[in-house]
Amino acid sequence: MNLLKAVYSFVALGLLFSCSDEISEPNVDNHQSIFLKKTNSQWNENDLYQVKSYQIRNLKKIEHSNSFKLEEGLLIEAISEKEYESANQNKYRHYLKDTLALVKINKSIHIEKTVLTDKFSKNGSSEFYNYLGYFPILNQYLVRGEYLDSLDYKMIDKNSGQIKQSLVSYPIISQNANFITVCKTNEFENLTYFEIYNYENGLYKNAFRAIFTNWRVVDFEQHAFWSKDGIFYLKVDRMNNEESSEETFLKITLN
């Protein structure tokens, strides 16, 4: 099913990889994926499609003990820096860094009825919140939460103070705000978590999730963007082995 037609049927919500209980094994074989499009990249394009797990459409969990090819959902292409920079001229960033709009008072950020307070306890747990900016197209604030061993990015409605979404990385919003993309690399395991959310009935719901094994994202907040052509662009390091990597640029198209 074409992803752009399918995303409107998604009903699953949650943080990264909080999956359905239903588990199915992928059909792993050696045939060439029909979604792969060869380009003049300097490595085997198949490497970009190696994933540890992915979810699509109804978000049933798909896992395998070894990495396998992503065969639906996205078209991933390696591109030149020149092509990347050309697309970068037409990027969309619905974001205002008006960091003085919400000032922390007594270690707390107040947004209507929502109060986010910095906390430090003797057992080592902690919470620290930092207001980052505002998305006018969504009428939502962005607040980063930093904890003992994790962080999240909260999208909070300006009028109600309701936390609309809690994401694992800085969110990149598409031109008409129908998609949000987040991406984060676990440096200890060299695994890259990639998610796309689709807007439906006032909320963003998961449309696609994957854990990629052969590339890691480079400064997602600064270098990733949706362009006017409806394609998502980002900068990555392609991992040749545990000790070396190769910087490149990717464009990702929804299939």
Rank of each mutant, 00 (worst) to 15 (best):
L3Q: 01
V7D: 09
Y8H: 10
Y8I: 13
A12E: 12
S24R: 14
S24E: 14
N30M: 05
N30K: 12
H31E: 14
I34T: 15
S41Q: 09
N46K: 06
Q50A: 12
V51K: 01
K52E: 03
Y54L: 10
I56C: 03
I62K: 13
E63C: 11
S65V: 12
N66Y: 12
F68H: 04
G73T: 08
I76S: 01
E77S: 11
E77F: 11
I79Y: 06
E81H: 10
E81W: 02
K82N: 07
K82F: 04
A87P: 05
N88L: 12
Q89N: 12
Q89D: 01
Q89V: 02
H94F: 09
A101E: 13
K104R: 12
I105S: 10
N106F: 08
S108G: 06
I109G: 00
H110E: 10
H110A: 11
E112I: 04
K113P: 00
K113S: 15
L116A: 10
D118P: 08
F120P: 00
S121H: 10
S121V: 11
K122R: 11
G124E: 07
S125A: 06
Y131M: 03
Y131N: 03
L132K: 13
L132G: 01
Y134D: 02
L138S: 04
V143D: 03
D149K: 07
D152K: 07
I156T: 08
K158T: 00
I163L: 08
K164P: 00
Q165M: 15
S166L: 14
S166F: 12
S169E: 14
S169A: 15
S169H: 07
Y170T: 06
Y170W: 13
Y170D: 13
S174A: 07
Q175N: 15
Q175H: 11
A177W: 13
N178L: 11
F179N: 08
I180C: 04
I180P: 06
V182Q: 02
V182T: 15
C183H: 06
C183K: 14
T185D: 08
N190K: 15
N190T: 06
L191F: 05
T192H: 07
F194H: 10
N198Y: 13
N201K: 14
Y204D: 05
K205V: 10
R209N: 12
I211V: 14
I211Y: 03
T213C: 09
N214R: 14
W215E: 03
V217G: 06
D219P: 00
D219H: 12
F220N: 07
Q222I: 15
H223V: 04
H223L: 01
F225K: 11
G230Y: 03
G230F: 05
I231Y: 03
I231R: 08
F232I: 09
Y233V: 09
V236R: 01
T248P: 00
F249Q: 03
F249T: 01
I252E: 01
L254A: 07
N255C: 02
